[in-house]
Design a protein around this nucleic acid. Structure first.
Lengths: 346, 346
DNA sequence: CTGTTAGCGCCTTCAG
DNA sequence: CTGAAGGCGCTAACAG
């Protein structure tokens, strides 16, 4: 019985094949395909045509290995499917495509362990740059040092650690928070509570600071009990609001660092038969889609997440990429805007 | 004046460095690092320790080039920041991490041109598999053929083209739509309109078919004018609803293939001083977060997007990856569920 | 402007 | 189980 030969998997077309069939040198083919100026437009044309004819596909991998860089950017976020981060990724992607770069995306699900793994993976993939927003768990930065040690550029955004030197792109959180409180104060609210996230994150410290500063500037009383640092979900927002609203000295407004928390506060009000904005003012952060759809509509700080994504990527292409090591690093502040809706308008 | 030498950029540590410093062969190092069985655990240990000591970083690029595959999966979606797709991506990512694979993400922004480019890019990157949901514009499939020609696995999901053979992961759109109409009928609605997307997409054809079948089975009248195929935004939903609700024979319910369209219908009702569910029933698709927050809350078909993402990836790892070419392909249907809320409960 | 040469770092034969 | 050799496909450096 005859042995049936394996279907031979046709070999990939390489620049050598093109070179051979055109009787020129492989390096010339390479130059032609890379649009080098050191090649005649005649050869360029020949090569392009032949490449099309033979269905040549450039092997990015081989080129990467040879060149030492990849035109790939790694992005690490806590959750891909949180609209704030999804928007940022979309913005980054848009700009990266313009610059012919690809994007590898990792999510940490708020776990330091996964964040460390993600960094590892991206380093091994030889990405040119890592764009990262830290997980809630992250307090150490050894893994970020690894990025530097491997001479990979990196930019922190939104949830950053000041413990490590890097380019950063953030909102002006202190100012945003200040403005939110100022807004509440102007609407006549006097006892303003702050529901923020874990204080080890810069971001929340700044928001708290802006809150405190505004209280002082507007002559409002600061109540230690009104300041909560671990409120980041609808459930915890509701629970804590229920608690505070049944004490002696109660808040008449809430500054929440997340719209989801605002939602929880709103639920608490409904349960207590209080109404917003009449009894209690609410303002959140992120300007999620749903804030304009609930009753009453929720005021929020628009963080311009999509634009933040664009700016992160643009920062990379305009400066970081070109930069020699040990140059001056830079922080970009992305504008914010108070979106006043029903929940804080009285 | 002396010439200052450039800071020499220390060279990357390779398996050769490890081999040299341990007095063994590079191939042994490779085997050790890859957990080959053809190596003693003694050497394995030595190598691992030395790798740690010298901060060795595996160069995935070089390995990819040599091996011919990359453990990278490419994902192409219309929009990263649409929650349906964001959830799918998140689900895919979760499973890929478990299998030590990375994800390159591209968005087409509903443009065929960008879709073609994305496919190109991913092919050049030597991804092992492409997971794709088509743009609204996509009617040709030449670029998908290219994927096959380059022997790259691929799976279509949600917005698929039947014009090309491939694994697919979709909802049972016809059944979902049928159940939605059945639900409306049971609630006593009789004149049910259908607001769908472009009919060249399979997905919408199926939903329309399910709608038609249900009308028939429940003895409801089919009005040609109640069927619209290009309604995919809140604005167009509102506009078309305003139109239909001011004709002689008006619908008393709307099946919308998107929650955003449902929202538009709701706006139209408010403008016409009609109320839902009393006057008009509404049900949408996707079970977006906001559907439970608006007044009245909106019924919707839950498509289990995150789970769909997981299943797509699992399909790849459990079958597609292992498959020889020209084997039987397969379609996975992801369950759906009618989420009944106020807008269709009377 | 074109061609030659020499690796990038790794993995996979195949010998021993 | 270990080692030697070769090449994945490309580009950069240099020579002509």
């Amino acid at each position: 019985m005859a042995i049936v030969p394996m279907a031979k998997r046709e070999k990939r077309i390489t620049i050598y094949d093109l070179a051979k069939s055109l009787n020129i040198a492989p390096s010339s083919v390479s130059k032609a395909l890379n649009n080098s100026h050191a090649i005649s437009s005649k050869i360029k044309k020949m090569v392009e045509d032949k490449a099309k004819e033979l269905n040549y596909v450039h092997n990015t991998n081989a080129a990467n290995l040879r060149r030492g860089f990849t035109r790939i950017i790694g992005v690490i976020v806590p959750k891909i499917n949180e609209s704030f981060f999804a928007n940022i990724i979309a913005g980054i992607e848009k700009v990266c495509v313009q610059h012919q770069h690809s994007l590898i995306i990792c999510q940490t699900e708020e776990s330091l362990e996964k964040e460390v793994n993600a960094v590892q993976t991206l380093i091994r993939q030889n990405v040119d740059c890592i764009l990262i927003s830290l997980s809630l768990e992250t307090q150490s930065t050894a893994h970020l040092e690894e990025i530097k040690n491997n001479h990979i550029h990196f930019i922190q955004f939104d949830r950053i650690s000041p413990a490590i030197d890097s380019y950063t792109v953030v909102n002006d959180n202190e100012a945003a928070s200040y403005q939110a409180v100022a807004h509440l104060a102007k609407q006549g609210y006097q006892n303003i509570a702050y529901f923020g996230g874990p204080a080890h994150l810069n971001l929340y410290q700044e928001r708290k600071q802006g809150y405190k500063n505004a209280l002082k500037d507007f002559g409002l009383t600061f109540y230690e009990d009104f300041v909560k640092d671990e409120i980041i979900s609808t459930a915890s927002g509701k629970q804590e609001a229920l608690h505070l609203l049944q004490t002696n000295v109660k808040p008449d407004a809430f500054l929440c660092t997340s719209d989801y928390v605002s939602l929880g506060v709103l639920e608490a009000l409904q349960q207590l038969n209080l109404s917003s904005p009449k009894d209690v003012g609410i303002i959140g952060f992120a300007n999620e889609m749903f804030t304009q759809l609930v009753q009453p509509s929720l005021s929020s700080v628009n963080q311009f997440s999509y634009e933040m994504g664009e700016q992160i990527a643009e920062l990379y292409f305009s400066e970081v990429m070109k930069q020699k090591e040990h140059e001056e690093i830079k922080t970009i502040k992305v504008k914010t805007e108070i979106v006043q809706r029903a929940s804080s308008s009285r």
